[in-house]
Amino acid sequence: MTTNMMGRVAIVTGAASGIGRATAMALIADGARVMLADLDIAGLDPILADARARGGDAEAIRIDATLEADQAALVAATLDRFGRLDCAVNNVGGGDTGVGICDETLEGWDRTVRLSLTATWLGMKYQIPAMVAKGGGSIVNTASMAGVRYSPAAAPSYSAAKAGVLHLTRYAAHAHAEEGIRVNSLSPGLTATTIVERMFTLDQQAAIAAGGQLIARAVQPREIADAIVFLCSDRSAMITGTNLEVCGGAR
């Protein structure tokens, strides 16, 4: 998919694997200059090597997205390296599976909410002023279909945190529209990432997809990435405060 991302500067958190990796590579392929951020700094090396081999422009930084100082440092490093910030993809998240309301621990709840909701807020706290300074920008927050509807595979903390991302996105979109900031979220369905592959066999993935969506297969990370690139680009100039469900058609 070709967009008008040439020369734009983007941040992608959680860029070392899965949806984050696919998104970073798609943005670079479409001409964006990308700051890759992840706790797994070594996991960013193959993306950097691929970008440079293709003539792309990318840099990497190690951050813990749940730490305010690291989120501030990420934006500062982006401005220092590229001089501006046009779009940001807040893609960090995760949580336990196979636990319910009565057996999830407070420690697990707090960890998941920090990773799947607080990290998104901290990212926007520093991204928005940087975008306002250059006249506007676009933010895409990775949510989840588990935040849209009940999923027995998701812990209550993860479902609640991702539902929080949906409303936080709408809040930010309303609060900063007059400053030229667009904010949208994207809710993937079952996606064929390495994390999902560790959780479910191929047969289990097929059964989950067949039971929960109209297109009976797992979503590929690149299919999520293409939608994110669209939301980052001017082709979605009149879309803000919206949650895009990329899930094969939820039943």
Rank of each mutant, 00 (worst) to 15 (best):
E104W: 09
L117T: 08
V113C: 12
V196A: 12
A210M: 06
G108V: 10
G211M: 03
K134Y: 05
M131C: 04
T201N: 07
A192V: 12
E107K: 14
K134L: 10
A209P: 03
V148C: 14
Y171D: 11
V219G: 01
A119Q: 08
I139V: 07
T169H: 06
Q205T: 07
G123P: 07
G212E: 12
R182D: 00
I128H: 02
A210H: 10
I128Y: 01
G135Y: 02
A177Q: 02
G100D: 15
Y150T: 14
R149E: 15
S151V: 10
T201G: 08
T112A: 05
A172Q: 08
G212D: 13
R149N: 06
T142W: 05
L122Q: 04
H176K: 04
R111G: 06
A160F: 09
E178P: 00
K125H: 15
A163L: 09
A146M: 12
S138F: 05
D103G: 03
S159I: 05
Y126I: 09
N141R: 00
A207T: 06
S187G: 06
W121T: 11
A155L: 07
Q204A: 10
V140D: 03
S151P: 02
H167R: 06
L166P: 09
S159Y: 01
A207H: 10
A161E: 10
E107F: 07
E107S: 14
K125L: 13
G135M: 02
S116D: 09
A130R: 00
H176F: 11
Q205A: 07
A207Y: 08
P221K: 00
L186K: 09
I208R: 01
Q127W: 09
K162M: 07
